[in-house]
């Protein structure tokens, strides 16, 4: 396959940045999208140019590091996969592919396609944890959890924190991410201790980071590689109202 890549290049956070076109040839349709960029980068290094910087780690769709907007869609044209799981057979010979970083005020570009996603870390630090006793391993069946609850919690826990929800939302809102993290713990008995303070603190941090609010458009869920459902956002809202009414935090 022969392709034209239109890639966002930006030296650092202060640089204005801009698109640069690259011609690339003899790409196998069986290559992954990231392998295709690896090929481009090897070529750039050979020529003595600065390779295209991009985030990646596990390359099997579970770490949440890869983050590219490909032809206007986070993680590219396929449903429910990350960029690393996207293959070149999803494109046609001769295509021009536009590659951009996540765009959000809260996620500033560090370099090229790499953005700073530490706002997610700070949201997690604000309340995305549970209190547990140290010591011996507890008995597996000591706490009864209904199967459907475990399933729902697991669906929420599938969130890999990649930020595609923020990237796809017209408001760059982090509600789907926060809702998955709040839901996952609100559904399980282990999460009950911090249940009320968690949702208050995580939402406060979300607002402080400069993410937008939710307009319930559903773009986040549609572009989420783990297909996190909007029902979690509804649960997050319920958790918030209930915390505000019942908690003793004034």
């Amino acid at each position: 396959m022969n392709l034209t890549l239109k890639i966002w290049r930006q030296k650092n956070q202060q640089d204005k940045g801009g698109f640069k076109d690259y011609k690339i040839s003899d790409i196998s349709p069986d290559m992954s999208f990231l392998e295709m960029i690896d090929v481009l980068n090897e070529d750039l290094v050979k020529k003595g140019e600065d390779p295209v910087h991009f985030d990646h780690d596990c390359r099997e769709g579970i770490c949440g590091m890869c983050s590219m907007v490909i032809n206007g869609r986070p993680h590219g044209p396929k449903q429910a996969i990350t960029t690393c799981q996207l293959h070149m057979r999803s494109f046609s010979d001769g295509d021009t592919i536009t590659i951009e970083p996540w765009r959000a005020k809260a996620f500033p570009v560090i370099k090229d396609l790499v953005v700073d996603r530490t706002p997610f870390e700070r949201i997690m630090q604000a309340g995305g944890y549970v209190s547990i006793n140290t010591g011996g391993v507890p008995d597996a069946n000591a706490i009864p959890i209904p199967k459907n609850m475990a399933e729902d919690a697991m669906d929420a826990a599938a969130c890999i924190g990649c930020g595609a929800c923020v990237a796809s939302c017209k408001n760059a809102s982090a509600m789907l991410f926060v809702s998955a993290k709040v839901s996952q713990l609100a559904l399980l008995p282990q999460g009950m201790i911090e249940r009320k303070s968690r949702v208050e603190k995580m939402l406060m941090q979300m607002d402080a980071e400069g993410f937008g609010a939710c307009t319930n458009t559903g773009a986040c869920s549609a572009e989420c590689p783990k297909e996190i459902s909007l029902t979690h956002i509804a649960r997050l809202n319920r958790e918030y109202y209930s915390a505000k009414v019942y908690s003793e935090n004034v």
């Binding site: 698109f19 869609r73 951009e100 005020k105 017209k170 760059a172 937008g212 458009t217 549609a222």
Partner: peptide, 22 residues
Amino acid sequence: NRSARPIGYATPNKSAVTSWTS
């Protein structure tokens, strides 16, 4: 919401996954 994305995308997301009115 508008201030949350100061720099927009060069290519719009054409997949009609969200309702137009939203």
